Amino acid sequence: MPYITTADGAEIFYKDWGSGQPVVFSHGWPLNSDAWDVELKLAADNGFRAIAHDRRGHGRSSQTWTGNDMDTYAADLNALVDALGLTDIILVGHSTGGGEVVLAAQYGAGRVAKIATAGAVPPVMVKKESNPDGLPISVFDGLRANTLADRSQFFQDLSEQFFGINKGSGISQGQRDQFWRLGMQMSLPAAYDCIKAFSETDFTEDLLALDVPILIAQGDADQIVPIADAAYKSIELVKNGILKVYPGAPHGIAGAYQQALDKDLLEFWKS
């Protein structure tokens, strides 16, 4: 299996399919690169080089004790880009991965052509003085407590909101099982620490600094990352953004939402 080694010795697993302009995918919490398989094949089938990695602590990458923070995640992604010698890159990120690619774009100035995010955590999730509309810290404390108490059952339960099953999304049991399987491949330190990374990192300045086109996509029934605090705010901060809102769509990329999103992603990649 292909790996790169980061400056601190972490081994980062990645997939590399097809050839052409590189499309580099970053996954959400608590998943890994397998969550992007449909989109990886879509990109490769349409003349792109499709690349996705398992974030450190996730999937097949090293289960490091340290480095489970957004700056290190972005540095790891930059290390992958450097190792593969990529230029003219299209970055694609879901949820936590959406924050990772926005931050990594600053490392890749001059090498990144465009960015697409789906259900992304920027600009910032947690409620604080500068973000009074955010979610209270108690929400994220609850995620941490459940992760420690019974991670396996917690991921099974969380899949209901993740895919909007409680809102009638019609997502299959198989999709829920896959969410649980990928989540359970993640180390406990990564599962715990990443909650702080995705909820408390403020990407406002990174969004303001972007000078490449960005597609900001999100379902308006997202129960994990509220659209009012995410896509609707992010589009106001970027210089060259396109907002795509999917009525009734959940956080997890599956079913009808996945079909619609993939159509828009492909159009954006080719534009």
Results as ranks from 00 to 15, higher is better:
153 Q>W: 01
151 R>Q: 07
217 A>G: 03
141 D>L: 10
187 S>V: 04
211 D>T: 12
149 A>F: 06
117 T>R: 01
240 N>F: 06
226 P>V: 06
158 L>Y: 14
200 E>I: 00
189 P>F: 15
195 I>R: 10
172 S>D: 10
232 Y>H: 14
190 A>K: 09
228 A>S: 11
120 A>V: 07
123 P>M: 14
214 I>Q: 00
126 V>C: 03
162 F>I: 12
215 L>N: 01
245 V>F: 12
228 A>M: 05
174 G>S: 14
191 A>E: 10
153 Q>H: 04
159 S>W: 09
162 F>E: 07
132 P>T: 03
151 R>P: 01
177 D>T: 13
147 T>V: 13
244 K>Q: 04
169 S>I: 07
209 A>W: 11
238 V>G: 05
124 V>G: 07
174 G>Q: 14
179 F>D: 12
219 G>L: 03
234 S>D: 02
181 R>Y: 08
154 F>I: 01
216 I>F: 01
120 A>M: 08
232 Y>A: 06
203 F>G: 00
175 Q>S: 15
162 F>K: 00
223 Q>V: 09
174 G>E: 15
178 Q>K: 15
171 I>R: 13
220 D>S: 05
161 Q>A: 08
204 T>L: 00
116 A>R: 08
176 R>F: 12
188 L>W: 13
196 K>G: 10
187 S>T: 03
185 Q>V: 00
156 Q>F: 00
240 N>G: 00
134 G>I: 06
121 V>Y: 09
167 K>F: 01
172 S>Y: 10
137 I>W: 02
120 A>E: 09
158 L>P: 01
129 E>K: 07
150 D>Q: 05
121 V>E: 09
229 D>C: 06
144 R>M: 09
222 D>H: 08
138 S>Y: 03
161 Q>V: 03
217 A>N: 04
169 S>C: 04
159 S>E: 08
208 L>T: 08
216 I>G: 01
208 L>Q: 13
227 I>P: 08
136 P>E: 05
150 D>E: 08
195 I>S: 11
142 G>H: 02
116 A>D: 08
146 N>D: 10
233 K>C: 00
202 D>E: 14
195 I>M: 11
139 V>S: 07
215 L>G: 00
118 A>F: 10
134 G>E: 07
213 P>L: 09
243 L>A: 04
179 F>L: 13
130 S>C: 05
214 I>A: 00
168 G>A: 00
172 S>V: 09
186 M>N: 14
135 L>G: 09
117 T>P: 01
149 A>I: 06
219 G>H: 03
120 A>N: 06
123 P>T: 15
224 I>Q: 14
172 S>F: 10
235 I>T: 07
179 F>G: 11
115 I>N: 04
212 V>Q: 04
115 I>T: 04
121 V>I: 15
116 A>I: 07
170 G>C: 01
140 F>Y: 13
227 I>F: 15
177 D>N: 14
237 L>V: 10
197 A>C: 11
116 A>V: 11
180 W>C: 03
